[in-house]
Simulated assay, not measured.
Amino acid sequence: MTIAELCIFASVMLYLVTIVPAKWISVDGAGRYDNARPRNPAFYAGGIRERALGAHQNGIEAFPFFAAAVLLAEFRAAPQNLTDELSVLFVIVRVAYVLTYIGDRPSLRSILWAIGFLITTGIFFLPLLRTYLPG
């Protein structure tokens, strides 16, 4: 497996790990997590749980484009080292994104989202550049 492929797995794990702690904490009086009603909106209303749910949902939204970009880059023989480096950078940016989302830093969060999107777009278009890049 390539580093970029492992980053696809890391991206999935990140959005899963984002929501799990929110289900365990009891900070805002919404009660305990009820596995019989896992999508109860009242449980996620307000505070850190709502932000963790938002970060989780955004991770699910960002994943398909990132995974498709990595696989396209690899299938179309883009430079593997650049694909790997950009993929690692994407995961780092997404970790920072989750932290700023949960930490209620909306402006920085939006900047990190844009950076992550640009990185994914760059990975997606790497096959176009393969004739111009060494290695």
Rank of each mutant, 00 (worst) to 15 (best):
W113F: 13
I92C: 11
P106F: 01
F90E: 11
W24R: 15
Q57H: 11
R49H: 04
G122F: 03
L112I: 11
I48D: 01
R32F: 08
R39F: 09
I60W: 03
A22Y: 03
L128T: 12
R51S: 07
I60G: 14
Y101T: 11
A36P: 10
K23P: 08
I123L: 05
V27M: 08
V93E: 05
G46I: 08
Y101W: 09
S107N: 09
L14F: 04
L128N: 03
V88Y: 00
V95A: 07
Y15I: 09
I119L: 10
P21Q: 08
F9G: 13
T100D: 10
R76K: 07
D104C: 12
L16N: 12
L72I: 15
R49S: 05
T83D: 04
F124C: 11
A77G: 10
R32I: 05
P38V: 06
R39S: 08
D34I: 10
E50Q: 14
I60F: 12
V95S: 01
M13Y: 08
I92M: 06
L128A: 10
E50H: 10
A78W: 01
P21V: 01
P64C: 03
F63C: 09
L16S: 02
L126C: 11
F117D: 02
N58I: 04
V91K: 00
V91F: 00
T100H: 00
P64Q: 03
L129R: 01
V17N: 05
L118H: 05
D104N: 14
P38D: 11
D28I: 07
Y44F: 15
